[in-house]
Amino acid sequence: MSNILQFIVDETRQILLQKGETVTDITLETEFLTDLPMDSLDLATLIVSLEMHTGLDPFRSGFKTFYNVGQLVELYESIEN
């Protein structure tokens, strides 16, 4: 599992735990807003945490569409490489 993927999975679990939600299964295909009990502010929290962790902001140049974990991982890995 890549570092980014591991961070996204751990951070997502942490954000949900703070809401009193426990999620066991998060895969590359998991969609944030439909498969998980997340709302848009939870997703914003994840993005802020990712920026702090990686120092990268793939959204600096504008909106980027992503729905699932794999697509978010790809956004960060495409900047890193």
Partner: peptide
């Protein structure tokens, strides 16, 4: 500031 609030939870 909102990003800080989110980080601080």
């Amino acid at each position: 500031v909102l990003r800080v609030f989110l980080r601080q939870n």
